[in-house]
Design a protein around this nucleic acid. Structure first.
Lengths: 357, 357
DNA sequence: CAAATAAATGTACGCGCGTTCATTATCTCA
DNA sequence: TGAGATAATGAACGCGCGTACATTTATTTG
């Protein structure tokens, strides 16, 4: 192993005190340019680099942004596209802010999961992906908040709380997707939902129902899945397989379904594959719109019309805002100045809906 | 902020010395069960959790595994199947080993990039993804090795060096893919290569050429790309777009091309899209095999025959082996006991090659 | 039962750095 | 030129923990 060079040795070689070396490297206080150069020269000679751990220790700040991910097997299930993009965005911002990025995979059974992340002091703030709206998770997050730990949820809203959140406007996005189908003249539009424990699953449902209500296709008071005809509502878990399963459920009713709005691309793709086995061809026998505008949407046959979500930007923003909160503490106000950002989505039209009729 | 509870307060409450508290939490030395319980009880009462940074500092070990990722401007690198899978594998192992995972994005211009990662002492070992075989990178890696820092390359071989590596047998995988095409009766098989700065691009080329030589379709001494007919060799950079570009180059020669072996799925998909615009339909007008067996291979039309690579396992193994090396140092032998793992690939047959002829 | 041994716990130090406070060198202006 | 202001530097401490070593207490042995 390379011997560890400390500031002490640098100080000796430069003929100054350790404090001065520290000052040079932290650029604090006034100092003679000559001294500065002498120290830097000595440091270079000895190949000195400050020990980041010791710095963290002395500063009582780790310099790490934690990124909490659902536990590994789950990541495979979720659209990796989503995580990839968000992670890239966070990575970009983290680098710009001079932080490092510490990945934490959530462990299903572990109770005090979130809190322990902070108590160990290994991260100064964190961004949480794939949180679910369950009582236990809510409780955990509340503990974090009470502890004054800066954190931010991505793509998940906890109604009634004042957590920091960066989300996309999935309700609007879904509304527009369905409106698009309606404007094309479709009436019998089915909805393929994702897992209900994510807030944005509900967002999509609401957007869908609003569009359908406005078109007079649903009663004005229709709100819950139960309020719509059974043959128009299907539920999956965002995986491609669950989309294929939905195909079996949907198949008997296809004579009464003209179009489908799927809650993400992977389910849409699974559904298309599944229905194809029954001889139903997307873009010919039915129209379909996906969600996420993942890469996969570009390579299906026909290419899938989908709702683009600015995942990268969401990750970047979440990191930026939560890092900004480090140190300020929550002394005078706590969550009073929490932020909740909601980014715009965009419908990307491809060929999966153009049917000659 | 929650006040920080230290072992001192725990010691006081439990009526023992600080050292004893330490022992309880590190499970070292013999101790009375009664004392142990008393300490744990006190810790629980005070909600004490050891400060990970302080531990790292005292132990002179960070408890972090660094994961170095390439920085690709504008390209969201995570968006690829490869990185997602490898990262998941690393994440799995890292958790099992009680480590944390620190992500580092390489910065193009930064010279002492690799070394600085270790000098800051923020990671105890690291896994390097997307390394390229260039003189400057080699030099950097050599410095790491000389410093005795444990690191491991994934999916990249540096011939002539004794770096730790976890790779897949891409030569064998490519050989088998091309053999598969040959066995189906194809003779005019084109090769779409990826960027040459990755060793496994060369691996694929070698596998391809060996199969072609064995089939008597190339001279026995054909080795370099220049040794094969120009209309059979194309080069991209692993992106879908580069595959589409290859389509333009390939198109004029299609009458003399029966099949294509593409170096990854994304290029294969781009190529299929591009050729389709010229009216050439994969699986009908030509056969095609991709590489990686990514999710996208399952959703193309026709589904893409591809070579599956155990990326997840590669990540897991790399992490496991490199973590095992922490602390052992390289005192007696240095890289003499370096490891080089080469995992098996597997051809996954789908419909992109069955042409009626 | 005393001596030898083992178990259990306490004392004390240092890890490398940031930082406060004290001290010394340098400058400003009358 | 000398007093006061300011710039520049040094001395010293503590961050929270692991651990070597010293000390005390319990157990075994002859």
């Amino acid at each position: 192993m390379a011997e560890i060079v400390t500031r002490k040795e640098v100080a000796e070689l430069a003929g100054v005190s350790e404090a001065t070396v520290s000052r040079v490297f932290n650029d604090v206080g006034p100092m003679k340019e000559q001294t500065r150069l002498r120290v830097l020269q000595a440091a270079k000679t000895l190949n000195y680099h400050p020990n980041a751990i010791a710095q963290s220790f002395a500063r009582r700040r780790s310099g790490n942004l934690g990124v909490v991910l659902p536990y590994v097997p789950k990541v495979h299930i979720f659209s990796t596209y989503y995580f990839s993009e968000v992670l890239s965005g966070i990575g970009e911002q983290v680098k710009a802010s001079g932080y490092d990025m510490l990945l934490k995979f959530r462990v299903p059974g572990e109770e005090s999961d979130y809190s322990s992340i902070f108590r160990s002091q290994k991260v100064d703030a964190c961004v949480i992906l794939g949180a679910t709206d369950t009582p236990s998770e809510r409780a955990e997050l509340k503990k974090l908040e009470d502890g004054g730990f800066p954190f931010c949820l991505i793509n998940q809203h906890m109604s009634g709380e004042r957590f920091n959140e960066v989300d996309a406007d999935h309700e609007e996005g879904s509304y527009r997707a369905v409106r698009y189908l309606l404007d094309l003249g479709y009436r019998d539009i089915a909805f393929l939902s994702g897992s209900p424990e994510f807030s944005n699953s509900g967002d999509r449902l609401r957007g869908y129902m609003q569009a359908m209500r406005e078109a007079g296709l649903l009663p004005a008071d229709a709100k819950a899945p139960g309020d719509l005809p059974a043959h128009l509502y299907y539920e999956g878990n965002y995986s491609r397989t669950s989309g294929m399963k939905a195909a079996s459920a949907m198949h008997p009713h296809l004579s009464r379904i003209e179009a489908v709005f799927a809650s993400n691309d992977r389910m849409a793709i699974g559904l298309m594959q599944g229905l194809r086995e029954y001889g139903h061809v997307p873009g010919r026998d039915y129209a379909i719109v996906g969600y996420d505008d993942s890469e996969a949407a570009r390579v299906t046959d026909p290419p899938l019309t989908s709702v683009a979500v600015p995942f990268y930007e969401m990750g970047r923003l979440a990191a930026e805002r939560v890092l900004r909160r480090i140190g300020v503490g929550n002394d005078g106000g706590g969550a009073s100045d929490s932020f909740r950002l909601k980014l715009e989505t965009k419908l990307v039209v491809r060929q999966s809906c153009r049917i000659l009729r």
